Simulated scan of single mutants.
Amino acid sequence: MNSRPTAAALTLGAIAALSLSTAGPSFAAPGDDEATVSVFHGVPGLTVDVYANGEELLPNFEPGTLTDPLELPGGSYDIQVFADGEGPDGTPAIEKKVDVPAGANATLVAHLDASGKPALNAFVNDVSKVPAGEARLTVRHVAAAPAVDVRAGGEPVFEGLENPKEDKGEVPAGTVEADVTLAGTDTVAIGPADLDLAEGTNTVVYAWGSAEDDNLALKTQTIKDLHSAPGGVPAGETGEAATNSAGLPGWAYGAGGLAAIAVVAAGLRLNAVKK
């Protein structure tokens, strides 16, 4: 695996295509022509500015930050990623066209692949109805690390999860102690951490960071109001604390300025990008 990412890692252009798939579980959005999109920055040691169609969307976007949901018109966006402070007149480190389907509820995740190279994946969030008394737990492996098992109360819940895969299931609502171990072993890589799995929610847990750099961490995203309707409203990140096996901080807190982001996002127009 690679060592701690440097400015060269800004070639998030190793980041494969940014297309959001509408396949998979049902999802809801504020309107038929809009999509609900959150963005999680899971590349350690790299602060960037993100532009969409020439407008600054995410300034000073720091590792460990999960945005609040953005309501964007469905369509194509020209996404440019600059080293912090180098846009918009400089040369972007990444320039990709992103297709955001109308009606999608998704999270874009910039992260490291299993070998430590920057990557980007789009996950469709399952906002289908959750049975009474239960909660949905979704785990996404986006860390530079081998396959892992996810345990709740010391018992494996998801086994052999590989980067950049996800797994999910319905569990009884309540607080559980969770940790992440190397697949097939009792070697704890992340945690333990208490997860509050409220009834009628989808708690999405991201395992991110780098095993080689000893900075593996967890991040959560909570999607609420799934007990009363087949659609829900994403609620951004949580603020519970966790540590990795080396005692380093695990849970990262979101950056401010999200209101400004929403204003910028609302003003974006869809433009076909020809390359």
Score class of each variant (00 low, 15 high):
74 G>S: 01
75 G>C: 12
85 G>M: 13
65 T>V: 11
74 G>T: 02
9 A>M: 03
94 I>G: 03
84 D>I: 08
88 P>M: 07
60 N>E: 09
52 A>E: 00
80 Q>L: 12
34 E>G: 09
61 F>H: 00
40 F>H: 05
90 G>L: 12
13 G>I: 03
28 A>I: 03
14 A>W: 06
80 Q>R: 13
62 E>L: 11
87 G>H: 06
54 G>W: 01
56 E>M: 09
20 L>F: 13
39 V>F: 00
58 L>V: 01
49 D>N: 01
44 P>V: 09
18 L>E: 01
90 G>I: 13
16 A>E: 02
28 A>R: 06
96 K>C: 08
29 A>C: 09
47 T>Y: 09
84 D>V: 09
96 K>V: 05
66 L>G: 02
80 Q>T: 12
80 Q>S: 15
94 I>A: 08
75 G>P: 13
25 P>Y: 15
28 A>G: 15
23 A>H: 14
90 G>P: 14
82 F>V: 13
11 T>S: 12
52 A>M: 02
83 A>K: 07
45 G>N: 08
80 Q>A: 15
43 V>T: 06
33 D>W: 06
39 V>L: 04
21 S>R: 11
13 G>V: 03
19 S>G: 12
99 D>F: 08
39 V>Y: 02
28 A>S: 15
95 E>N: 15
79 I>G: 08
59 P>A: 12
90 G>W: 01
38 S>F: 10
25 P>I: 14
38 S>D: 05
37 V>F: 06
41 H>T: 06
21 S>Q: 14
40 F>P: 07
56 E>H: 00
64 G>L: 10
67 T>F: 03
38 S>C: 11
59 P>V: 05
88 P>E: 05
68 D>H: 11
30 P>D: 12
11 T>N: 11
46 L>V: 13
65 T>D: 11
77 Y>R: 12
18 L>W: 04
87 G>V: 01
32 D>M: 06
38 S>T: 15
61 F>T: 08
98 V>Q: 08
98 V>I: 12
64 G>D: 10
48 V>L: 08
29 A>M: 01
42 G>W: 04
66 L>T: 05
67 T>W: 06
96 K>W: 08
98 V>T: 02
26 S>A: 15
80 Q>V: 11
40 F>Y: 04
79 I>P: 10
32 D>F: 06
23 A>R: 15
86 E>T: 14
93 A>E: 02
70 L>P: 02
44 P>G: 00
21 S>D: 00
46 L>I: 11
29 A>Y: 00
60 N>C: 01
77 Y>A: 13
44 P>T: 07
55 E>I: 00
72 L>T: 05
27 F>N: 15
74 G>D: 01
77 Y>F: 07
27 F>P: 13
17 A>N: 14
20 L>D: 04
58 L>K: 01
49 D>L: 03
66 L>R: 01
22 T>C: 10
19 S>H: 14
14 A>M: 08
25 P>L: 14
77 Y>K: 10
94 I>F: 02
35 A>V: 15
17 A>F: 10
65 T>K: 01
97 K>N: 14
78 D>V: 00
